[in-house]
């Protein structure tokens, strides 16, 4: 009489691991497909936004509205970050996420001996 097959030995642990990792890799590849189709799908919305930027002459993204120098990052001057009161230190949370724009640092670096 033949013994019934033990299900524990039909699928080895390495087989399960390979299948899981293959599935994860497949999902990672799928994200690339999603990103590609997402960009295609968003093209009209991006073009609409770009047209608005051109029409209004906008210079910055509306990422952080709590402070002027983080709202219009590219237009900030030396004073805006520290003009709220004497000895003013950086106190807006978004100021710790964003550094001063490159053009400010480049323009004034010659003042430092």
């Amino acid at each position: 009489m033949q013994r019934p097959l033990n299900p524990r030995y039909l699928l080895r642990k390495s087989d399960i691991a390979f299948v899981l990792i293959a599935l994860l890799i497949l999902l990672v590849v799928a994200t690339q497909g999603h990103a590609y189709y997402g960009r295609l799908h968003s093209k009209s919305a991006l073009d609409m936004k770009q047209a608005l930027v051109r029409k209004l002459g906008l210079t910055d993204l509306c990422l952080f509205t709590e402070a002027r120098y983080t709202r219009h990052l590219s237009q900030a001057d030396l004073h805006t970050a520290f003009q709220d009161h004497p000895m003013s230190l950086e106190h807006f949370p978004s100021g710790s996420l964003l550094a001063p724009p490159q053009l400010l640092k480049r323009k004034y670096e010659k003042l430092v001996p």
């Binding site: 994200t31 997402g38 960009r39 968003s42 990422l63 952080f64 509205t65 709590e66 949370p93 978004s94």
Partner: peptide
Amino acid sequence: QVLKGWAVLYPSFALVPYV
């Protein structure tokens, strides 16, 4: 919460996927 900071107004961060 980190991105909003103290701001009351903030955009929707539904970004176009770029990897």
